[in-house]
Design a binder for these strands. Structure first.
Length: 643
DNA sequence: GTGGCGTCC
DNA sequence: CAGAGGGACGCCACT
């Protein structure tokens, strides 16, 4: 065990560290950003190793109404990272690190973990305090594993930055400190090293760790001071931040920790089957090519198809290479045998490498469950994204792909309930544009693609053909993405003039939609941003670009973002309401996934009926639009069956 | 690290 | 005239 700590020497070296950092902060004050930067303050960081030292900070916490809080852990995975210390900051420049899990040889005696957490919990759960964090979802999840909560009101600087401007910067602390405080921070790599030699935080010497951790809390506090006024003083952004993003933090933390049960055996069997099929396809492909090559290499495939076999080049990649993507291969497959084999191989290979091989690796053996991470400050439009693994792109389109979803299962006596918004983005288009025809069609509960087809092609609802409906569907989706007549013609495989005729007819029948598209472009150019119905803002600096392509792309985003973003806001509202209902009703159910317009819950079979009714009520009630929101629900023992 | 591709909504 | 579909994540090949 470590020898008695020489607190004085440690303290001295810690101060030297402070001095260097302080000079650096002053030196680095120059900043090219347009944001007005706050004055730099001197730093006074404490390393808390004794109860006497901790008492000073407990007094400070008692005296303030808000403080920044950060946990330091052995890793970034919220399911197994262990907490090694916490840092707090009560006023700019003044912060402390309270270590309790540093265990390198010679590590000084530290306070006891549960003692520290007990004493801090008083303040972390005080309804009169504000706890400020940077990505608090992580801290909440870690603490939850130690049976601890933060029930005090919370603020999150990552989300403040995201709501203030989702695209101006990435929302990690180092970038935010640079942009909003003009301050260079100590990077984790600088104290822990990188690559295979990287040490975990428990192995970092306390003087370096203490400075790093205290700085984290200090920066977080200062970021809140810089960013909060930008949000609180804006009556559009404030509700988005306060009523959506902040409450969602706790919901996401809960969903992530719930996880989803996976049938690994099933996925392994699928992998083996795919391996056999891939081997067969490879043999066939080599035979057709007259030589062996790597079917997974677009470059090698391109050489075979377009040089050796002299197939026509239908499309080039942005870099000028002949494209071998699926639409090209589909077209070539009409005349040649090899492309078809490649398509099949690609599909199966994707399935195996991304899903059937990978998902089981991420399943926790103790529980059989998979725990994704939802990123709340990544997508510019307000959507969530999912990583490690991405559960928002699990296949559904093809039969082979859907088999993967069969491996997402419920435990005995429980079922999966999948609830998805029906045509939510089109409904939002009807709402935002105020178009009468589209609104009426939704109010009458019509099949919207069929109704559109009837209008565009001038036939009765019953007379709409499959092909007409398919065209109408392509137009509807194309409009949401800002697609041109050219794009529509590609999509439908029809001449461009015909596609143009369809679009003209569409706009004749739904003039409100056309007006909306024009207005939103003008608004974007005028204000430099567009908004969702809830007030979330997306800046589009490139809307004024002199580059035609950049400008066009920005205009398409201007059209799409209010619809995609409003849908994102609505499901966020629904998630908060559903989790609230689960908490208060004690229903034996939990949310386990979100896929943009769909929520998946795991529910006790005995409680399916009440739960389903509540979910529908809450999701439909998440927003009052000029047309009703509709939700489709499926229940089954696996995710595939729930659709 | 970048490019190409493919999965989802 | 030319270019012409929004938002993500992740795998593989290649440099």
């Amino acid at each position: 065990m470590a020898t008695a700590p020489d607190l004085e020497a440690l303290s001295a070296s810690f101060e030297a560290y402070e001095l260097r950092a302080w000079r650096e902060a002053l030196g680095g004050a120059a900043n090219a950003e347009a944001e007005a930067l706050p004055e730099a303050v001197p730093t006074d960081y404490d390393l808390v190793l004794t109860q006497e030292q901790l008492n000073i900070w407990l007094d400070r916490l008692a005296a303030v109404e808000r403080f920044a809080f950060d946990t330091e852990t052995t890793g970034l995975n919220y399911m197994d990272a262990e907490i090694v210390g916490v840092s707090i900051c009560t006023t700019p420049g003044q912060a402390a690190y309270i270590p309790f899990g540093h265990d390198y040889p010679e590590a000084p005696q530290q306070l006891e973990q549960s003692d520290v957490l007990d004493q801090l919990s008083v303040f972390l759960n005080d309804p009169k305090k504000l706890v400020i964090g940077q990505n608090l979802k992580f801290d909440l999840s870690i603490l939850a594993r130690y049976g601890r909560t933060i029930n005090a009101p919370i603020a999150d600087t990552m989300l403040e930055s995201y709501v203030y401007n989702s695209v101006a910067t990435r929302h990690n602390m180092d970038d935010l400190a640079q942009k909003y405080l003009g301050r260079k921070t100590v990077k984790f790599d600088e104290i822990a090293g990188k690559g295979v030699k990287q040490r975990t935080f428990n192995q970092i010497e306390l003087e370096a760790a203490g400075h790093y951790a205290a700085e984290d809390a200090d920066i977080t506090f200062q970021l809140h001071e810089a960013l909060w006024p930008k949000i609180s003083g804006d009556n559009r952004l404030l509700p988005v931040y306060q009523n959506l993003e902040v409450p969602l933090i706790r919901v996401l933390s809960q969903i992530e920790r719930n996880g989803v049960l996976i049938d690994c055996k099933m996925l392994e069997t699928q992998s083996e089957e795919i391996t056999r099929e891939l081997a067969d396809l490879t043999v066939t492909a080599f035979d057709l090519a007259g030589e062996t090559f790597n079917l997974s290499s677009p470059k090698q495939l391109q050489a075979i198809l377009f040089e050796k076999l002299q197939l026509p080049v239908l499309k080039k990649t942005p870099k000028g290479q002949p494209s071998t993507n699926e639409s090209v291969l589909q077209e070539l497959a009409l005349d040649y045998p090899l492309p078809k084999v490649v398509i099949t191989h690609r599909g199966l290979s994707k399935l195996k490498s991304t899903y059937t091989d990978q998902l089981p690796k991420l399943v926790r053996s103790q529980s059989g469950r998979l725990h994704t991470s939802y990123q709340q400050a990544v997508a510019a439009t307000g959507r969530l994204s999912s990583t490690d693994p991405n559960l928002q792109n699990i296949p559904i389109r093809t039969e082979a792909g859907r088999r993967v979803r069969k491996a997402f299962v419920a435990p005995p006596e429980r079922s999966l309930l999948a609830a998805d918004y029906s045509q939510i983005e089109l409904r939002i288009m009807a709402h935002l544009s105020g178009d009468e025809g589209l609104t009426t069609a939704f109010q009458q509960g019509l099949d919207i693609h069929r109704a559109t087809a009837a209008e565009v092609f001038g036939v009765g609802l019953d007379a709409v053909t499959q092909d007409q409906r398919r065209s109408a569907k392509a137009i509807n989706f194309g409009l949401i993405y800002g697609m041109s007549a050219f794009g529509l013609s590609k999509q439908l495989g029809i001449p461009r003039v015909d596609a143009q005729t369809y679009m003209d007819l569409y706009f004749q029948r739904y003039p409100g939609v056309q007006r909306y598209m024009q207005d939103i472009r003008a608004q974007a150019a005028d204000q430099g941003y567009v908004e969702t119905w809830f007030g979330r803002r997306l800046y589009l600096p490139e809307i004024k670009s002199s580059n035609f392509q950049m400008r066009q792309a920005a205009e398409r985003t201007a059209i799409n973002a209010p619809m995609q973003g409003t849908a994102a806001d609505i499901i966020k509202r629904a998630m908060i309401d559903v989790q609230d209902w689960l908490n208060t009703s004690n229903a034996p159910a939990s949310i386990i996934m979100q896929v943009h317009d769909e929520l998946v819950l795991e529910v006790d079979d005995a409680a399916l009926e009440e739960t389903q009714a509540a979910i529908i009520r809450l999701m439909c009630g998440a927003a009052e639009l000029s047309i009703p929101l509709e939700v489709e629900v499926g229940v089954a023992k696996d995710w595939e069956g729930a659709h």
